[in-house]
């Protein structure tokens, strides 16, 4: 069943504004994300990489093109179903932490469970489990604002992880961290992929982070310009955009 849980995007187009201020963020992008793989979406700021991630994560709807999640057309899903999908199957890590200040670390981590309507006891249990996994159990009662940057990002990962998602979408997960703490956070993410088979979709302009992923999708001006991977050979084979669909499908 897991092998069928593919995010399949075909010809995605998205633009903002209208008239002279119209900005085409995506001009026809096709991407497939297979279960258990790690994919980097790489590009400069304004290239449309974040927009692509938002569309893949069902945070936004494309103007044109189709998006299938686990074989179901996203358009056919009700608002409620989309909310539930994001809540249960997706985890989010953003460049900025978006932690609720003056709330405990545990409260921050269990927010998705609270939204899901899970009871207090189970919430606490799951939250503490995740915090232990991230070696933050001793900070559970601390206020989120008292943590260091690396600790905060670990809390954010905990929050993304607490619902046991299939896919974690990370938008510049190390953008706000120094190299050393950034590396720790990266290690945690890739370890989650290895041990729990969680699919990683990482948006980044950091080439080194991108290189650690199985596959890289390079975006420029709203188009996929090249595609590299898989990385098990260590070599970054370059593919043309046309080859992307087949490569994605094979992964």
């Amino acid at each position: 069943m897991d092998s069928e849980w593919v995010i399949d995007a075909q010809g995605l187009e998205k633009s903002y504004g209208s008239g002279t201020s119209r900005f085409d963020a995506l001009k026809g992008v096709s991407v497939q994300i297979a279960p258990g793989e790690t994919v980097a979406i790489v590009g400069k700021s304004g290239s449309g990489k974040s927009t692509l991630m938002h569309l893949l994560a069902l945070l936004d709807e494309p103007d044109k093109g189709s998006l299938q999640v686990a074989g179901t057309d996203a358009k056919s899903l009700s608002k409620r179903a989309v909310n539930e999908l994001r809540n249960k199957e997706f985890g989010f890590v953003f460049q900025q932490f978006f932690l609720t200040p003056n709330r405990s670390v545990l409260d921050n981590v269990i927010l998705p469970l609270k939204i899901a309507g899970i009871g207090v006891k189970e919430r606490r249990g799951r939250g503490m489990e995740v915090l232990e996994q991230l070696e933050l159990a001793d900070k559970a009662g601390n206020k989120a604002t008292t943590l260091s940057g690396g600790q905060k990002q670990r809390v954010v990962i905990g929050r993304a992880l607490v619902n046991a998602p299939r896919v974690i979408f990370a938008d510049e997960p190390t953008g706000n961290l120094d190299t050393a703490t950034g590396a720790v956070v990266e290690d945690i993410l890739f370890e989650l992929n290895r041990s729990q088979g969680i699919t990683l979709v990482i948006v980044t302009h950091d080439e080194e982070l991108a290189a650690r992923c199985d596959r890289q999708i390079f975006i420029r001006d709203g188009l996929v310009v090249s595609h590299a991977g898989p990385t098990h050979t260590g070599a970054h084979a370059l593919h043309t955009p046309e080859a992307l669909t087949t490569a994605g499908g094979a992964a």
């Binding site: 994560a57 945070l59 909310n83 249960k88 989010f92 978006f98 927010l111 939204i115």
Partner: peptide, 16 residues
């Protein structure tokens, strides 16, 4: 704003 955005991203409905 961001907290609301985050909650909505994490699947909280507009009604809630």
């Amino acid at each position: 704003t961001r907290e609301i955005g985050l909650m909505k991203a994490m699947g909280m409905s507009s009604g809630k």
